[in-house]
Nucleic acid binder design. Structure first.
Lengths: 222, 222
DNA sequence: GCATATTCGATAGTAATACTATTATATTTG
DNA sequence: CAAATATAATAGTATTACTATCGAATATGC
């Protein structure tokens, strides 16, 4: 996968000017990931990003309408990237059970290596997804933005893995609920491990999140 | 429970002046719940709340340092209230299995009736918890605030139900992970049902969230 | 290679937000 | 009735989240 140099296309409504099309745009993405990771989404502003980029904030506004849309752009990219990994890891694997286990692995394991398929640091981005991604859809504008397809790449991931669940047990009633519980739960548990440890039993650096959710899925669908 | 007129005490570091001690303070709580429910936490400001209360915003600042602390106050109240319900529903029930099932019921069922044990509308508050509560701890100040005990009532709920899990299966490795997955998952699924339905299989008004998580817990701990 | 878009930097400006401070008046309490 | 407390009214500040304009640099199209 390392040298495929895949290209991830993002819903064009998520940007005013495609950041992928210019060096500055790519820099906006790369530096915004670093800055959000460092200071958090609330404290993140286009002004601060502009200082990092040596560009006025008005230039950033030419690419993204506001920081909320930028966050949705970043999460869309992340889920498209995850879907790519899911496809790559499951093609040519006949056993649906093996495909499911591999998928859960991808969804629950920490992202530790920056594959450098692009100017995007996936390790930092995955940390942002854990800490901040729910803020992209916990807003008053969620219905409107959902209609415009802003969350499509996330839905694709849930749908894809749900289909494997149904291959194993066609009569299972709650495949989407199960998979979105796994995805969101794995994020939560990693966040808890770092910040609210009494809400979990896992510790950073262990694989108990994967162990827990793998076991959960196996038990629940049989 | 209706007429017990219970009194919920909140960590005194969460307010500058106890809102429970004055009529205005109680009004601040009551109206802030209505306003956050209506316009969402991002758009909610003390200025707008002041207009609703016919009080200048500076008065509200005498009770709460800022809107973030007010949100933590509201979530603390909610979890203390939930814990009270857990205790009430499980005392004198010998069977740990029955206690667990009852607890999951309380944690996953929608809050439909305002018990009016106080000036707080629990139905609206529970909606705020579903939509906004994660914002209270997904901040850069979470570690510092956790040290001050701001999230204690939530932890108490997780701890209490985890102990029931261990009564049933003392060797189960992940009781806290299981219970926090149930609590957060149930909120997520209700939110998805309303706003991102393709991420779930439940519909508003059904009890499939309770069904799913009850089954999940039973399967996983046996 | 020259005109013409396009892009970007520089600067300015605005409305709203998130507070803080001060003073005067009203109300409670001892 | 005095003293303490609470609140209303007002003013003010730094920051945020944008929008607008203009001119210089760069790329592209013929």
């Amino acid at each position: 996968m390392k040298n495929l140099n895949i290209h991830i296309e993002i819903n064009s409504e998520l940007y005013s000017k495609n950041p992928d099309s210019t060096e500055l745009g790519q820099n906006i993405i790369a530096k915004s990931i670093e800055l959000i990771y460092e200071i958090g989404f609330e404290a993140f502003t286009f002004k601060k990003l502009g200082i990092l980029l040596n560009s006025p904030e008005s230039t950033i506004y030419r690419y993204f309408k506001n920081k909320h849309i930028l966050l949705i752009y970043l999460t869309s990219w992340y889920w498209a990237w995850i879907e790519y990994q899911l496809v790559f890891a499951t093609t040519n694997v006949d056993s649906p059970r093996k495909r499911l286990l591999k998928s859960i692995d991808i969804l629950t394991k920490p992202v530790l290596i920056d594959n450098s398929i692009s100017y995007i640091n996936e390790v930092l981005l995955s940390q942002i997804i854990i800490s901040e991604s729910m803020k992209s859809y916990h807003t008053k504008s969620v219905d409107e933005e959902n209609k415009k397809g802003y969350f499509q790449t996330y839905k694709n991931v849930v749908q894809r893995v749900s289909e494997i669940v149904l291959e194993i047990n066609a009569s299972y009633k709650f495949p989407h609920m199960l998979i979105s519980t796994v995805i969101e739960g794995a994020h939560q548990q990693k966040y808890f491990a770092e910040h609210l440890p009494s809400l979990t039993d896992t510790k950073k650096g262990t694989n108990s999140v994967t162990e827990f959710y793998t076991n959960m899925v196996i038990q629940v669908i049989k």
